[in-house]
Design a protein around this nucleic acid. Structure first.
Length: 485
RNA sequence: CGGGCUGUAGUUUAGCUUGGUAGAACGCUACCUUGGGGUGGUAGAGGCCGUGGGUUCAAAUCCCGCCAGCCCGACCA
């Protein structure tokens, strides 16, 4: 089966993921480098993918009771400094504005690296009583983090994301919120992006600066590296204390609110690229593909052109209520050229339509997930056929990615095994003693980190307890190790 | 910020060692041809060779500075 061969070829090619990312992002016209180092331009086709991701997620965010709002780009520098861990974590990667209107500013303005501080400042004004809670906010915004090494979509200086911020009366409620949103991210990733993830808790060293607990979803890219695809934080009362965000409870007592924040970014597009691709280019899951079906007319003479194009339009209008569908009627390109063009761009379904098909009342369909060519598909009932096919492609892409993840997830019991396995990448499952030193040793020696303490392990036959793969001390839990972006 | 590499047409690049008229492919424009897997042809347009200085009769080529980018290390969604 060609599909399996392609994936296997990728498995052996684990080191070349980076060039695949840049190559696809540029060739499929998703993005381009900007004149400013570390920044990128998201081109219309790439932005259209983001809009699909946005609308899917935005609906789920609103369905769970959250409202969108917008907080400013500029944050007074003093705000960042109010929460000790937060400033320590973010100060090195902040861009700071010192001049405005030709004058040096009295207080420097930080370009937001995230918005916990400004939102808390506002919440402290808005929240008085337990009746004001919960506050469930979300914002779609750009943020800036001054990164040393950047990569298209996976890590750029400025990026687009969604950040949810909520305030609750109790720990239980806030913690439940944190888990609920992580579950939504998991659904987004698996059901929409067709990328399987491991969900779990971050270790202390990987925790968000200022959070009590950070939950995450982690995906495995085709080059064997892990990618953090979304995080959800229980912030405790840390920011509430720093900004004095208090409410009066039912007993008349003043209490600090319990807060959460959670986000996913345009990094998800990088994850799609790094999960769904082959030698021809990108493969987009139908649910988030800006163009789900491309119709390529095939003709010779002018007379044929008229006939074929009118049939194409007829088919288009019968499908346009159910699909994002387009006809590529450009005359300057040959059909063969167009085939390659739309394959690079990852369009899930292509319809080839020529005089022969019209004579027989059929179409030719090519599916991008398997590259299979399906000949003589009747025009009657085409819509239903395509609806089924679309669902199947969505599932196949997920299954392909799931199989890849399974083939590249290994159990290790000691450092020796770890050192050998980590070379070729993948998720490594092993015991860890919960000591940060052991984690640090693995990072120094192998450039690998603990991605998370999983809620549920992706491999069977787990023992309850074992020995830390580094120090051999007793351990109660297995964790997921990997090299990461 | 350290170490390595690279800057030539829109893109990928040849030429640089050994100084002497800047070449190709793709893309672009026009026309013809072709069209069911990147058709073929003809004719064109397009370059202060990253930048500043130096050496020389003469610099894309040699030397020095600067700038930018890429890769490798220290940070991260």
């Amino acid at each position: 089966m060609t599909t399996t061969q392609n994936i296997d070829a990728q498995d052996k090619d684990l080191d070349h993921g980076e060039s695949i990312l840049a190559k696809i992002a540029l060739e499929a016209e998703l993005a381009d480098y900007s004149p400013v180092k570390g920044c990128m331009v998201i081109r219309p086709y790439g932005y259209a993918i983001w809009e699909q991701v946005q609308s899917s997620l935005d609906k789920m965010i609103k369905d769970t009771g959250h409202q969108n709002a917008y907080f400013p780009l500029f944050i007074p520098e003093s705000f960042l400094k109010k929460e000790a861990e937060h400033v320590e974590g973010f100060a090195p990667e902040c861009a700071v504005v010192t001049y405005g209107g030709g004058k040096e500013l009295e207080e420097k303005l930080v370009v937001r690296p995230t918005s916990e501080t400004i939102i808390n400042y506002m919440l402290s004004k808005w929240i008085h009583s337990y009746r004001d809670l919960p506050v469930l906010l979300n914002q779609w915004a750009n943020i800036v983090r001054w990164e040393m090494r950047t990569r298209l979509f996976l890590r750029t200086t400025e990026f687009l994301w969604q950040e949810g911020h909520t305030a609750h009366a109790t720990f239980e409620e806030a913690n439940e919120e944190t888990r609920k949103m992580l579950e939504i991210y998991k659904t987004l990733s698996e059901q929409f992006l067709a990328i399987p993830v491991i969900d779990g808790i971050k270790t202390d060293s990987q925790r968000f600066a200022g959070a009590v607990t950070t939950y995450c979803i982690e995906g495995l890219m085709k080059d064997g590296k892990a990618l953090q695809m979304g995080t959800s934080h229980y912030l405790g009362q840390n920011f509430a204390r720093a900004f004095d965000t208090k409410f009066q409870d039912q007993n008349g007592q003043l209490q600090h609110v319990h807060q959460t924040s959670w986000g996913v970014s345009t990094r998800l597009i990088g994850a799609i690229i790094m999960t769904h691709n082959d030698e021809k280019g990108l493969k987009l899951p139908p649910k988030i593909a800006p163009v789900q079906i491309i119709i390529v007319p095939i003709y010779k003479e002018l007379q044929e052109r008229e006939l074929v194009l009118s049939k194409c339009k007829e088919i288009l209008s019968s499908l346009k209520d159910d699909f994002r569908v387009k006809i590529d009627d450009r005359d300057q390109f040959t059909p063969g050229w167009k085939f390659n063009h739309w394959e690079i761009k990852g369009v899930p379904i292509r319809i080839n339509l020529g005089p022969k098909d019209i004579a027989n009342n059929v179409v030719e369909i090519v599916r991008r997930d398997t590259n299979q060519k399906l000949k003589n598909i009747p025009q009657d009932g085409l819509k239903q056929y395509l609806l089924n096919l679309s669902t199947e492609i969505q599932e196949t892409l997920f299954t392909q990615a799931k199989d890849f993840q399974a083939r590249n997830t290994f159990t290790v019991t000691n450092e020796d095994e770890f050192s050998k396995k980590i070379l070729s990448g993948g998720f490594l499952i092993g015991f860890w003693c919960e000591n940060t030193t052991c984690e640090e040793i693995l990072k120094q020696k192998y450039k690998a980190t603990i991605r998370c303490i999983p809620f549920k392990l992706p491999v069977d036959q787990m023992k309850e307890e074992g020995y830390c793969i580094v120090c051999n001390k007793n351990s109660k839990q297995r964790v997921v190790f990997a090299k990461a972006y």
